[in-house]
Design a protein around this nucleic acid. Structure first.
Lengths: 120, 120
DNA sequence: CTATCGTACAACCAAATGGTTGTACGATAT
DNA sequence: ATATCGTACAACCATTTGGTTGTACGATAG
């Protein structure tokens, strides 16, 4: 039995909110390709370092990126696990539309459930 | 050649923002299963009719739902096409992470492109 | 040791968000 | 004809968001 973590409503809110800004999506893309320090990221945007720092924090709270310390730098890298869960959630909406839903836990989609079986 | 509509940054912002609230995700689920009037939707939430109306408007502006008039009612139904595009976008982030990107248009992900080939 | 780099964080501000109530108006039911 | 239902929309308000600048502090370079 694979313990598949389900996102709560609040977590899902945070993830979609984090994805709802082009700068943050860009940061996600860049850190998906390669780990980047906050100042490396900040260098390419037309806003203050502190602003970029805040965008990274939003991504971090949504657990879309992970930050680790290396000397005085903070290296940011994308973590695809939450993205995968969100993709699965969106797929469920499409399945609902197609009338493809039969399993109860799919109907309960977003509502808290302890665990379920892996399929992906 | 399949004309595949790509979402602009602003459109993507709107879609993710629309998805970043549990009430709106619930409306999307309900209208994915069956067309619902605005007051049918509103009946089940602990907020004013006007508030629900606004949530529906946000979903509509993101083109996640379509509203049609039937007598004095406005019937809302989910439209899965934008969802599908967003799922594809998220899949690209995962692909970036896995180093699976080889085609140029995938690297340009979100940036405006006239058309591309269908694969889904 | 000192200067600087990378970061963290607080305070502040304008704009957007998410709720409310009130008014208006066409469609329907009596 | 009148009352009511379903909706639209404006005005208002508290909170959140997304930016700013300024200060502080550990890590590194000279």
């Amino acid at each position: 039995m694979v313990v598949r973590y389900e996102l709560t409503d609040a977590e899902t809110d945070r993830v979609f909110h984090a994805l709802a800004a082009a700068t943050r999506r860009d940061i996600l893309r860049r850190t998906a390709v390669e780990e980047q320090s906050v100042s490396q990221l900040a260098a390419d945007y037309d806003m203050s370092f502190a602003a970029v720092q805040k965008h990274v924090a939003v991504l971090e709270e949504a657990r879309l990126v992970i930050k680790r310390a290396e000397g005085r730098e903070r290296l940011v890298r994308a973590d695809p696990t939450v993205i995968a869960r969100v993709r699965a959630l969106l797929a469920q909406y499409e399945d609902l539309w197609r009338g493809r839903i039969d399993r109860l836990d799919a109907l309960l989609a977003e509502h808290p459930s302890s665990d379920s079986t892996e399929r992906d």
